[in-house]
Computed example of a mutant assay.
Amino acid sequence: MTDRQTTPETVEESPLTVALLSVAAVGWTVAMLWSARASITSRADAAMEVTSTAYALPGAVSADLVAGAAVALLALTLVGRRWTLGATARFAVATGTGLLVGVVSAIPIITINTLGTIYAAVGGTVAAAATIGGALAGLRIPRVITAAASASVGVFLIGFLLNLFQEPVLNAFGAGDTASSANAAQWFSYSQAALSGLAAGLISYALLRRAGRRAETSPASGAVTEPTADGLRWPMYALAGAGPGLLLVIGELLSRTAGAKVLELAGKVSELERTVQELLSTARLNNALIVLFAGALTAIFAVGRTLGSPADETPADELPAGTGAPVAGTEDPDAEGRDRAADLASEDENGAEPRDKSEAGKPRD
């Protein structure tokens, strides 16, 4: 393998790619925060405000994770065009950018009621999510993080579209009475997670392949021979495909820890509400795990389809002797040995041939 100063994993993404990703991620986050604020402020009593806040928290946290990572990637790309950042400086810039995104995201929630501790808890959770997303962007695998964040936006859009047409889909799954409706809802949830994982794997794979081809054609990239055509090893594809599911898992864990006060207060509204919150929390974690594994497997299978058979890729000059007919104009490696054997035989004093064919070509005493 040809050495190079910058490995394929650490090649920065183009500014246009990360700029578009940042616009999409920030736009989605703004939509989620606006929806959460509108839902909370439209409730007539405090109990309904608490339950609405609990319902809106996981979506806002997941969106801020992606937004923090996307904006941090953009900041790193722009700064890296003028200065070379070391590992510590890179992490500091990424984490600081994520924190800034988190602080701005927390403002719409905290200002609902500056005296309410529940909104301070939500704002703090949202800010922590964006900060963690920014820190993840500081890892020296920018192309992988970009692909995972882009796939996360795709997962959000798939979830939005499926929920927009939820009623006909539930009817297709046989929703009717209470039991069949619950069964249809479960199938709907699993189908959404599987489809999201499939999309995550394909989107991340396509973006990494495109970025790899662009890096190979860049004059500064150098020649690279790797297990895949674009210089990235298959575990990087698996990580990018699993990225959206991993972010969903992190978001759910944040909601259960940093946002535990919100979920606890929602559970105190009624016994039914506590049961609903527990079911929703379990369902979100299960769906996140499905997206994680389905995305990773899809990306791995996509990479596997691009790898040719080793026998097909072996150069002709590396084939074992005798596996193919000699080509005109090429040198026969055994020709020199045969010529030497003929010369020795002709120098035999008595002109007799060797007693055994195995002795041909051996020097005489």
Rank of each mutant, 00 (worst) to 15 (best):
G124I: 10
I109S: 00
A172Q: 08
L99E: 07
V104R: 02
V126Q: 08
F160V: 13
G86T: 10
R143E: 13
T84E: 13
A89N: 13
V79N: 05
G124N: 05
R143V: 13
G102D: 03
W83K: 14
A87F: 12
V122D: 05
T146Y: 12
L73Y: 12
A137T: 01
W83A: 13
N113T: 00
I145M: 15
L74Y: 02
A147S: 14
G102A: 05
V155R: 01
L85V: 04
V101Q: 03
V155T: 12
A135P: 01
I145T: 07
V169F: 09
T125L: 11
R90M: 07
L161W: 08
T97R: 08
G174L: 02
V93G: 03
T88E: 15
V169C: 04
A147R: 05
G80W: 01
S150N: 07
A147H: 06
V144F: 08
I107P: 00
A92R: 13
L115W: 06
I110M: 07
V93M: 05
L162Y: 15
G174W: 05
L139C: 03
G174V: 05
G159E: 03
I158E: 02
I110L: 06
F165Q: 10
A94F: 01
A129Y: 05
V79Y: 06
A87Y: 11
G174Y: 04
V79D: 04
F91I: 12
I158H: 07
I118D: 15
I109V: 14
A127F: 06
T97K: 06
P142M: 09
